[in-house]
Each structure stands twice: as C-alpha cells, then as structure tokens.
Design a protein around this nucleic acid. Structure first.
Lengths: 184, 184
DNA sequence: AACGATACGGAGAGTGTCTCCGTTTAGCAA
DNA sequence: TTGCTAAACGGAGACACTCTCCGTATCGTT
C-alpha cells in the first residue's frame, strides 16, 4: 500500500472513532470524510461499506479481549461472581459507542458482515469463560458460546437503546447469570 | 374528523400493514403513500413520524394481548411451563413484522415515542403474569414488568435480526425463564 | 527525469424524508 | 340548491445521506 494511502486510511479511522463516539455508529459518513479532509471517494475506496469502517474502528479493542477475559476469570468470589464479572465486562466492551451492541448482534446473524470477525473473537472469549466455569461445575451443561453472545447481546442492545444505568443492566444480567448456572 | 380524511387514514394504515409485512418496518413511506393512492403530504399529515404510523398498525394486536395472557396462563403444566408459554407468546406478538422487536425496545426507552402506549400494554400483560406466578411461588420475588419487557425484548430483537428459528429462540428463553424462577 | 500504477477528490446521480402551498372538497347554513 | 369556509388533498421540490465515476495528482521505480 502506498504511503499516502496508508496515511489517509489511518486518519479516516481516527476521525471515525471520534465521530462515532460523538454521534454513535449512525453518524453520516460524509462528515467523517470532511473532517478527515479527504474526498468521499477516498473514504469509500478504503471502506466500501459502513460496516467495513466500523470494523476498523472496533479493531482496537479486539486485542484487549483476551486480557479482559483473564481479568474477569481472576475475579475474586464464587463462580457466579466470576460469571457476572465477565458478563458486565462483555457488555462494556460492545457498548463502547452508541449503536455498538446493535451492530454486533446484527453482524452475528449475517455471514457476509465484515464485523463477523469481531463476533468470532467474542465467541472465542465466551468459549474460554464457559470452559473454565463448566469445569468448575458452576455452569450447567450445554451452554454454547453463541447462545451467550445472543443473550448478552440482547441485554446490551436494550440497555444501549434505553440508556439504562449500570444497576439496571446488572439486574438484567443477574437473571441471565442465574439462568446459566447449574441449579443446585 | 371529516369522512374523506378518515377514509384516507384507514387506507393508509391498511396499506402500511401490507408493506410492513413485505419489507419490514423500514419500508419507504413514499411507497406506502403511492400504493394507498394519496400524496406524501396526506400521509405525513395523518402520521407525522414513522412511529405514529407503526403505532397505528400495531394497534390491531393490542386488543388481543389480554386474551393472549389468558391463554398462556391457562397452559397446562407446571409454573415454569406456563412462564415459557407466555414468553414465547410475547416474542411472537412483538415479532409480527421484521424490525418490530427493535421498534418496541427502542420505544421503551423513549418517553416521547408514540409507540410508548404499546409498551404500557405489554408491561401490563407482564404484570398480570408476574402476579399470578409470584402468588403460585413460581417466580422469585422482585421481578418487575419492565425488567421482563427488557429481557424478552432483547431476546426477540436478536432473534429478529439474526432470523433465528423457533428452537434456538426457545433455548434462549429457557435461560431467561430459569433465571426468573425461584431457585429451589 | 520520465513513466506507469496507484490514489485522490468532489461533482452529481440515486434514494428516502418531509414541507409548503395552491387547489379541491366536505359539510353546513341560509 | 346554492354558497361559503374550514378542512383536507397532492405532489413538486428542498434537504440529507449514500455511493460512483472519472479527470487529475502523486508516488515510487527505473
């Protein structure tokens, strides 16, 4: 890739992150192009669809998912507390910008979505948590990573759209957590 | 309201229901105006925002919610089975058209939304189910109607966007149901 | 320095939303 | 029936956003 191309690409992603933070993932792409001081053509050449751009912006946290899992698994307390820690971390990750949860959950159902790779990362993270907690006898059998993605994605989507506060989100996640743990 | 106005209004709603069924709640409003053989101005005078129109289309099932609750509560089986019957009914109600769950859940967080009245009806329905199942000792204490709206709305939204099949949706609802019932 | 490949920019076409205002019509009163 | 007025109509067009096309500019190599 030519040097000027890379320069432009990087600047677009940088500006996009800013604009998405301000306005959510539905922000007009033309504004991003304008603020990045490139033509619309340049933006669309680098990122043919909005989701390609969203994907590039999301890339930053992908690398931190693994350490987030480690951190949640190291949470002190019983198995359910560990699970809750992870669920809250998960919601936080995908709720970084407004519209994020919806984007992720939609992508989960669309094999063509560029954001799909992010879903795989999240599913992988869930996989790790599930394995650990199943071994510990905390989770009931048969919990699938995708199932967890969907349940928590659903809660995060509602929370994002209704701008719920943290305690309210926690009360929803607690129902999910209780539904997942092995019934005593 | 003048007779011709009512005639047009009714025809718009009728056509809208058809178009929404075909294309989901994101269908272009101009097409609805065209197919209803009215000018765009007429459509927007009767329904200033898309949600006003969506609300009018949804009005039809509002009246059937109460009987749906009765039916679910009459479901044979233990308390958990009754709860599951209701959850599935609920998802079915709000998933009538593509985009419906998202519309409802968004409206739930927006006090200004015209669809808000529909949410109240659904919350009322949940209230009835909660009261009955709490009396029976099935549900744990402190389950709120809104909480149920959000949890099931989240599941329905994901299911709608990912076009999940019934068994998959059921598996998600079962986790929610297990999280809601009194732990033995 | 010259050249070909690569990338740029922004005008403009396409699509959907929504308003404005000149024209038409329903319904009432004389 | 006729005339009148408030209510309702319709659709052209302004606006907003998406996305493409192609003439122009730049990079990096020979």
């Amino acid at each position: 890739m030519r040097a000027d191309a890379k320069r432009n690409r990087d600047r677009i992603v940088e500006v996009a992150r800013l604009v998405f933070r301000e306005q959510g993932y539905d922000a007009p792409l033309d504004e991003i192009a304008k603020r990045a001081e490139v033509g619309a053509g340049t933006l669309y050449r680098h990122f043919p669809t909005r989701d390609d751009l969203v994907d590039a912006v999301m890339q930053s946290w992908v690398d931190s998912v693994d350490t987030a899992v480690d951190k949640a698994l190291a949470h002190e307390g019983d198995g359910r507390a560990v699970l809750m820690a992870w669920l809250e971390t998960y919601v936080g990750l995908i709720s970084l910008h407004r519209g994020g949860p919806a984007k992720i959950t939609t992508a989960m159902g669309d094999p063509e979505s560029p954001i799909r790779s992010k879903c795989q990362v999240l599913a992988g993270a869930n996989q790790r948590v599930i394995e650990r907690l199943t071994d510990d006898g905390v989770l009931r059998d048969g919990v699938e990573p995708l199932q967890l993605c969907r349940l928590v994605g659903g809660v995060a989507t509602v929370a994002d759209q209704s701008e719920l506060d943290a305690p309210t989100v926690r009360s929803l996640l607690e129902v999910v957590a209780d539904g997942l743990v092995r019934q005593p």
